[in-house]
């Protein structure tokens, strides 16, 4: 519609111009007696028309310049370099469009980087999984091979069967963790944060590690006002807390303490899980939340190294965060912050 309008407009303009010129000639020849005056007026009108033409040429030049600048910006963006005439803080239309184009380019770039990173992550995942699976599968192969030997004693067979079962459990546990982790990475599970009593969630988390703690002779204590409510998904939060507690129990020697304290702050509620374990060196504070991280000291213990990673992911998803403070040899405090 607009295009048609402009075409009509230019036609009308041209026509009107021709009519006016004809009229001018007629008037001049009829009414102006002196020749010099006639030519003078014609010259002046010619001058005005010329100025007009120059003006429109100037405007067109500006538009062409504008379009050139934009194309150049796009080219530079495609090639990944900085555009030549780039005055980012000039208050002109060119700068405005350039700014937006570069913004778009950044987003696209970011997207590209992100997908590259995602690919890397997936690659990493796959390699981690294959790496982790390798050992149990190798073991399973070994033990099944052994079990197939005909001249195995019943006793030995039982031992090997148990070991095989253990390996299968381990594999199962690994699979579960890997599934959780992949879901976490790719964001396919949904959290339903509701306002609920943290007391119950903690109780649930504790119930998971109660047995182990008692086995090791570690005292579990809780200090929590039963009325405190936080925004959290009870199931997942319980799992996260459980992972942390599990860690705490795992790395605390027998006879130690694991205490849970809940303190409500203005924006967040803080849940401290303190243990009297071996501690984490400061340099590794951030590392503990990485995938498959295991401290050297804990190499002997069971575990995959995903517990804290999962817990961190779950808490982060709920718009909270976890922080660590530790003293070597004395103990570690994990602080979980949830929106109150």
């Amino acid at each position: 519609m607009k295009r048609k309008q402009t075409k009509w407009l230019s036609a009308v303009l041209f026509f009107a111009g021709a009519v006016l010129v004809g009229f001018l000639f007629r008037l001049l020849w009829e009414y102006v007696p002196r020749a010099s005056a006639r030519y003078g007026i014609l010259a002046v009108c010619g001058g005005i028309v010329l100025l007009n033409l120059l003006w429109s040429v100037l405007k067109r030049r500006q538009i062409e310049q504008f379009s050139d600048d934009i194309c150049e910006t796009l080219d530079a963006a495609i090639a990944g370099r900085q555009p030549e005439y780039f005055q980012p803080y000039e208050d002109s239309l060119t700068a405005k469009v350039q700014g937006k184009l570069l913004q778009y380019y950044d987003i696209m770039q970011e997207g590209r980087m992100q997908s590259r990173r995602d690919k890397e992550i997936l690659q990493g995942l796959v390699s981690d999984i294959s790496h982790q699976v390798k050992t149990p599968v190798a073991n399973m192969k070994l033990y099944s091979g052994i079990l197939q030997k005909p001249d195995l004693t019943e006793e030995k067979r039982q031992i090997f069967m148990t070991t095989l079962e253990e390996q299968i459990d381990k594999l199962d546990f690994l699979m579960q963790s890997l599934i959780h982790m992949s879901r976490l990475e790719t964001g396919t599970f949904v959290l339903h944060p509701t306002e609920g009593r943290i007391h119950e969630t903690i109780a649930q988390a504790m119930s998971a590690v109660w047995a182990k703690a008692e086995q090791k002779g570690i005292v579990l204590s809780v200090e929590c006002d039963p009325e405190i409510t936080v925004q959290h998904d009870p199931k997942w939060t319980a799992e996260a807390l459980g992972n942390i507690l599990d860690n705490a129990v795992k790395y605390t020697p027998a006879g130690g303490h694991v205490s849970i304290t809940v303190r409500p702050w203005q924006f967040y509620t803080r849940i401290d899980i303190r243990d009297t374990g071996m501690g984490i060196p400061e340099a590794h504070y951030q590392d503990v939340f990485q995938r498959f991280y295991r401290a050297e000291e804990a190499a002997a213990q069971e575990g995959v190294g995903l517990g804290l990673y999962l817990a961190n992911g779950i808490i982060n998803r709920q718009k909270g965060y976890i922080s660590v403070k530790s003293k070597m040899g004395e103990g570690t405090t994990f602080s979980v912050y949830l929106l109150s």
């Binding site: 980012p88 803080y89 000039e90 208050d91 700068a95 700014g99």
Partner: peptide
């Protein structure tokens, strides 16, 4: 990458809003 002291007031204004 842009040194703010080299900008004039009107460029600073554009900087501030963008």
């Amino acid at each position: 990458g842009v040194n703010l002291s080299g900008l004039k007031e009107k460029e600073l204004a554009v900087f501030r809003r963008n």
